[in-house]
Structures are given as C-alpha cells and as structure tokens.
C-alpha cells in the first residue's frame, strides 16, 4: 500500500450515531465517509456498523437490497460492529431472536444490560465509554479473542478482521479512542 495514502473508513449511515465517529477516525490518521449504498462500499478500506437500532438497520438493509453487498464486504474488509452493529454481525441473536449476518461467532442478548435506566458510563482499559441499552455478549465461539470484559462478560471482541464492542467509545470526546485506534491499526494491517 502507498504509505502516503490515508485509509478511508466508512460508517454505515442508514441510521444511528454516525457523525460522532468522524473526529475519532481523523485523529487516528484516517479519513471518514458516511456510506449508504453498494457503490459507496466499494470506495472504503474498512467499515464501521454504528450504534443505533438494530431492527431499523436490518429493515433498511433488506429494503434497500444491501444484504449481499454488505455480506461481501464482511468477507474481505475489516468491520467493526458497535452495539446495534455487533448484533448485526453476531452468529446468534437472542431476546428476541433476529436475523443477522453471522460474520462473527458470538451470541448476543439484545438490551441484555437493560433499558435506558440501566445505561451507564464505565472505564474499559482506562478509557470511559457508554453502555446504552446495550447488548450482552453471552457466548464467544472458537478463535474469538476477548480484548476487554465488563461485569465478567466479553465487551470488546475480535476474530480475524471482524471486531465488535457492546459499548460506545464514539460518544467520548477524547480523540481517538483506543478502540478506533485498534480498528484502524487492523485496517492498516489488512490493507
């Protein structure tokens, strides 16, 4: 890869917390792009599935015929699913069960940490992050590396070029977050 060329990190912008990623991505030395179409996906080096509502994203992915092109992206580019995004990537989704891409061998329980009253801030590896109506990663399959846990549950996991966090580092205003840095390092290794 050309050393001068900056990586272009796409954030799926069908719905959810998209813009907060921009400052983190830029502080980690890459460029940000909000992506909505199959043509957009072709331009980027790595993809973030942001926090938001997983059911909404799922419906929009199906309605806009993006399923196959996204699945194709997941096979070849680094992908990071955050909260709702991690639910889309999971192999198994519980409470209620829901269709998913099964790109990462984990089981997630939707809203496992509870409703908004249970949303909270916590330090992960010394960095404050937000758990918002967050899913619990209840099981991890073979080869999944648990990078950090919260209440003895995996909260930051990775296998190969696929990464997932149950929490939101993008709502922290100290740029870049260690998670963005790790993801962009992953993208550099893969590029």
């Amino acid at each position: 890869m050309d050393r001068e060329k900056k990586l272009l990190i796409g954030v799926l912008a069908l719905q959810g917390a998209v813009q907060p990623h921009k400052a983190h991505i830029e502080a980690a030395g890459a460029d940000f792009m909000a992506v909505k179409t199959a043509a957009d996906f072709e331009k980027i080096d790595a993809l973030i599935l942001p926090g938001g509502e997983s059911t909404t994203m799922l419906k929009l992915i199906e309605r806009f015929d993006l399923w196959d092109s996204l699945a194709d992206q997941f096979t070849k580019k680094p992908v990071w699913g955050i909260c709702a995004g991690s639910i889309l990537l999971a192999e198994t989704v519980l409470s209620p069960t829901q269709k998913s891409f099964a790109a990462l061998p984990i089981t997630v329980e939707r809203n496992g940490y509870g409703r908004q009253l249970d949303s909270h801030h916590v330090d992960i590896n010394g960095y404050p992050v937000s758990f918002i109506r967050a899913p619990i990663i209840t099981e991890v399959g073979q080869g999944v590396e648990v990078i950090a846990s919260h209440n003895d549950r995996p909260a930051w996991v990775k296998k190969g070029h696929i990464m997932a966090t149950a929490f939101h580092p993008e709502l922290t205003l100290d740029f870049p977050s260690p998670m963005h840095r790790a993801f962009i390092d992953l993208a550099r290794e893969t590029a």
Binding site: A13, L14, Q15, G16, A17, V18, Q19, P20, G51, G52, E53, T56, C83, A84, Q116, S119, H120, H121, P128, V129, S130, I132, R133, H168, L171, T172, L173, D174
Partner: peptide, 20 residues
Amino acid sequence: NNSGSVINIKTGLAEMLKGG
C-alpha cells in the same frame, strides 16, 4: 450536561435515534 469528556448518557440515547 456532559460528565467530563463523555457525552451525557441521556443525550447518548438520542444519538442512537438519529436518522430515524
């Protein structure tokens, strides 16, 4: 409304609803 360097958890949920 933000505590330290993190967006308030109340506004955090509003961030998740954006674009919907």
